[in-house]
């Protein structure tokens, strides 16, 4: 469904991605794992068009999307829920959800039905329906942005660190919901720092380090792999204080 091959991306002078290749098949949950700065979020940005890769190509349903604007890509069916709960703070929950459907035309009645579906998935939002989004707690905002992403009726939903800064109980709730919407047929590409959590819900995983994919496997296989822990704590390559480094920055 989604095919990323050999992309390279940079922010100004910093190369954030070197040669990333990955694929997502219909109906899967794929998780990208890695420490902070490994390039997980950048990969999602490259797919959704917020960042254009310097090299490589991205295809969705066999058509190249790596030169398209985010506005167009979301119309093709990829919704990106960025890291950090970017609600529209001044709009209400309802209005945020309506904005989520900006990528498609739909009648007012159809829109109401879609909103109703989202509220079925996130019953908590019903109570907050007319509140301004800034007044919501972190967990509620996270549900809102996922719900807003679903309002686009995407065929691929990309979630960037949905557990970020949330209390464990709420994280559990959010991840249960992720499994649930996947069970209903949604393909999901997930970025997660929390390894156990990510591997719990995903079918397959890619492991990133400094902008490269260093490993890929089924989530099951990785779950039992203790060496993964070291990678996540960044302890894979211990530096030796006092080693003869003569290289200059």
């Amino acid at each position: 469904m989604l095919e990323v091959s050999h992309i390279e991306a940079r922010y100004g002078q910093v190369t954030a991605l070197h040669d990333i290749s990955l694929s997502v098949r219909e109906g899967e949950i794929v998780v990208l794992l890695g420490v902070n700065g490994a390039g997980k979020s950048t990969t999602l940005k490259a797919i959704s068009g917020l960042l254009h890769p310097a090299r490589g190509e991205i295809t969705f349903d066999g058509r190249r999307i790596d030169r398209m604007s985010p506005e167009t890509i979301v119309r093709r069916g990829i919704a990106h829920v960025p890291e950090g709960r970017h609600v529209f703070p001044g709009l209400t929950v309802r209005e945020n959800l309506i904005i989520g459907a900006s990528n498609r035309r739909s009648s007012a009645a159809a829109l109401e039905r879609d909103i109703e579906e989202i509220l079925e998935i996130f019953p908590e939002l019903r109570r907050l329906y007319t509140q301004a989004a800034w007044s919501l707690s972190g967990g509620q905002q996270q549900m809102l942005v996922i719900g807003r992403g679903l309002m686009a009726k995407p065929r691929l939903l990309m979630l960037d660190e949905p557990s970020l800064g949330l209390a464990p109980v709420i994280v559990k709730k959010v991840f249960n919901t992720i499994s649930q919407i996947n069970a209903q047929g949604m393909t999901i590409l997930l970025v997660e720092q929390n390894v156990n959590l990510g591997l719990k819900v995903a079918h397959r995983a890619y492991l990133l380090e400094t902008g490269k994919i260093i490993r890929t496997d089924s989530a099951e296989a990785l779950r039992d792999d203790k060496s993964l822990r070291n990678v996540m704590l960044g302890a894979s390559a211990p530096a030796h204080p006092g080693s003869q480094t003569t290289r200059q920055l």
Binding site: V35, L233, G234, A235, S236, A237, P238, A239, P241
Partner: peptide, 10 residues
């Protein structure tokens, strides 16, 4: 810092 090997060294 996030880089644990760096942290461990300094």
């Amino acid at each position: 810092e996030h880089d644990m090997s760096f942290v461990a060294s300094v």
